[in-house]
Design a protein around this nucleic acid. Structure first.
Lengths: 134, 134
DNA sequence: GTAAGAACGCACAAAAAAGTAAGTGTAGAA
DNA sequence: TTCTACACTTACTTTTTTGTGCGTTCTTAC
């Protein structure tokens, strides 16, 4: 994937991706969407909204993440430009994570969805119950 | 999970779930969020916005889904009350899928996120490029 | 002293998600 | 008369994701 079949000039992603269509296979947006909607991606974005946190604090805030998964999620989000990582060269290590402007925008959308789910959970739960009751 | 340890009256999910906190482990909203943000869940919701589709048509519209995954995704979404399935007892089979009112609301949120991603993909791609260029 | 905390990277293992292939039963098209 | 479409299901394989635990390197608290 991402290979340059015609193999000419050095590819620039930002050129090639004017506008994709989510519903088409290989739409590059799908990759980004995947990071944003990943199990921990959503929660990290939300946890980081409005505050800067250190790795451990973030881990404590996001219930259930393992260190490995948090690190990986943070890498992905940083790589896409949603999260900013600032490391101070001291010992013991001190690293701060925060949202970039891009990340803030994305977090808003993610948060809107998450909020909707939390608020409407009772409606969904009612459907579950009905099905059990028959 | 979901077992009734104290084992008294028949549990009703809609009671137990007044309001969860996404950031806590075992928050039930996470299950629903998982379905909505799953790889194919997002696409199916979007594909079904505004139109009723048959299984095959849906499969053709959502590029890349296998039959198995589409069926499973549809099951999950139906189970949560986002999708309505209407089967006509004829041969060859005829089944129609559409969004419920709940599904329409959810789809709006999901779509908002997806649209944001598509529109802002160039900004993300620029970050990718920068990193490559160094 | 000895343990914990800081922020990971790395190797391995288990679990979950996804893909592949094949089968079902009938009808209308080629 | 052989083929395709329809809407799946089931069994099996592959891929991806997630978790576990160890090592690092130094400092502060007990």
């Amino acid at each position: 994937m991402l290979q340059n079949a015609s193999g000419l000039k050095p590819e620039r992603l930002s050129d090639r991706l004017a506008r994709g269509d989510l519903l088409s296979v290989n739409c590059p947006s799908r990759v980004v969407l995947k990071h944003l909607t990943s199990r921990w991606g959503v929660l990290v974005l939300i946890a980081l909204e409005g505050e800067t946190l250190r790795f451990s604090a973030l881990r404590r805030k996001v219930g259930g993440v393992s260190e490995r998964m948090l690190a990986q999620t943070l890498h992905d989000l940083e790589h896409d430009g949603f999260v900013r990582r600032v490391a101070f060269d001291v010992v013991p290590p001190h690293v701060e994570y925060s949202l970039t402007p891009l990340g803030i925008e994305a977090a808003e959308k993610v948060r809107a969805l998450a909020d909707w789910v939390e608020i409407n959970l009772p409606r969904v739960a009612r459907v579950w119950d009905e099905r059990k009751t028959g």
